[in-house]
Amino acid sequence: MTRFKKFAIAAAVALAAVGCQDPVDKAAKARIFSPEDPPKVVASAAEKLPPEDVASNPRVARRILSMDAAEVTERLGPHAYKATVSYEWAGAPGTVPVKLSETRTFRAGRGGVSGDFHGVLENSRDQGLEVMRVEGKVYARNRYGTFRERLRDRGMAERTRTELTGAIRDVDSLFRGRLHLAPQGTITYEGRTAWRYSVELGPEGDTGSAPAVLPSLLEPKNGRDDTTKRRLAFFENRTPKSLSGEVLVDAQTSVVLKVRLDGRITVPANDAGGAAELRMVLDSALSELGKDPELAPPQDFLPDVDKPQGIADALDRFGIPRNKPEGATTPGAASPADEPADDEGT
């Protein structure tokens, strides 16, 4: 080995040694090889939320009332949840009220945020959906359909879990965060000590958090349709008039165990329509605390497949004939010339 090569090797080793001492490199290596941070919901579940502070601390109240289903499972373990929500719209005197009721059921297994669960949503108009996750695989269907495995709907199961179990959060949002709790002592529920609160309509602006700053809505080129106008008018002009009920909060985990709410919202007459009133009633409760439902995947389900590319491909896939010019063939299909000749008689 020549003297020059020896010098080059020594220089390279010296530079590598100096680089290893660089604090920036050390910090980068520490980040790369450090253990993966746990999901945020796990950290949230470790936060202490004193249930006795719910009435006096709006931040704690909002935090408990809006607790996500994944965090509830982390705090409480396996459980069952059932909620019934009814809506009744009343318009001008003499009009027929519009009624709708829905039932939400949810069963959480072991494993916390990544565990198994099964949720069902049904309403009085014969609509609904069903979603389950078992051993990391997701299956979904509409009310009367067949389960289909969902391999590529990233986050669909988690979103459905959140929506199914967020009834009290939805009511609180519709009432502009004015759900106010007054302490009524403690009681025993499902063998656990729970703080009991009566519900009343609180003052405006006492939500415990800053209002969300949202971008302005885009205006359609040809203006908004009547349905959109009525929907926006409701959300912009709704005025909570009354709210009553009861909420039970677990003393150990700060999870809402049972809810009974009855409230009314009015909307004054405007360009989108006449005056109206909405009555909402919510009944929800947790049960089977700590009992593993031992969920199993559905016995009959369809595999996850690509969606047909366009109407023509959908017709071909389901064997529905479509009008084609005489002599034309379906793309990808064999033409008469490509078909094997009949060997009979040869």
Rank of each mutant, 00 (worst) to 15 (best):
R3I: 15
K5R: 10
K6Y: 12
K6T: 14
A17D: 11
G19V: 07
G19Q: 11
P23R: 00
A28P: 09
A28F: 08
A28C: 08
A46R: 13
K48F: 01
L49C: 06
P50W: 08
S56P: 01
R59P: 01
R63I: 06
L65V: 12
A70H: 07
R75C: 06
R75H: 05
L76P: 03
P78A: 15
H79E: 07
Y81E: 00
K82W: 00
Y87D: 00
A90Y: 01
A92N: 09
L100V: 06
E102W: 02
G109Y: 08
R110F: 03
R110S: 14
G111C: 10
G112S: 09
G119C: 10
L121K: 08
E122I: 11
S124W: 05
R125M: 04
E135L: 01
E135I: 05
K137Y: 01
R141M: 15
R141E: 14
G145T: 11
F147S: 06
E149D: 08
R150V: 11
L151F: 07
G155Y: 05
R159N: 12
R161V: 00
R161P: 06
L164Q: 11
A167F: 00
A167E: 01
D170S: 10
D172H: 08
S173D: 14
G177K: 05
R178Q: 14
L181K: 13
A182P: 00
T193S: 15
A194K: 05
W195I: 02
E200W: 08
G202V: 10
E204V: 07
D206P: 00
G208L: 11
A212H: 02
K221S: 02
G223E: 12
R224Q: 07
R224V: 12
D226V: 04
R230F: 04
L232K: 09
S244W: 08
G245D: 03
V247Y: 02
L248M: 04
V256K: 11
D262R: 11
V267M: 10
N270R: 03
A276C: 05
R279C: 02
M280T: 15
L282C: 05
L286W: 07
L286I: 10
S287V: 02
D292Q: 13
Q299W: 06
Q299G: 15
D304G: 13
V305Y: 04
D306E: 12
Q309H: 13
G310F: 06
G310L: 02
A312M: 07
D316L: 10
G319P: 03
I320A: 11
R322Y: 02
T329Y: 09
A333S: 13
A333I: 02
A334C: 00
S335W: 01
E339Y: 08
D343Q: 14
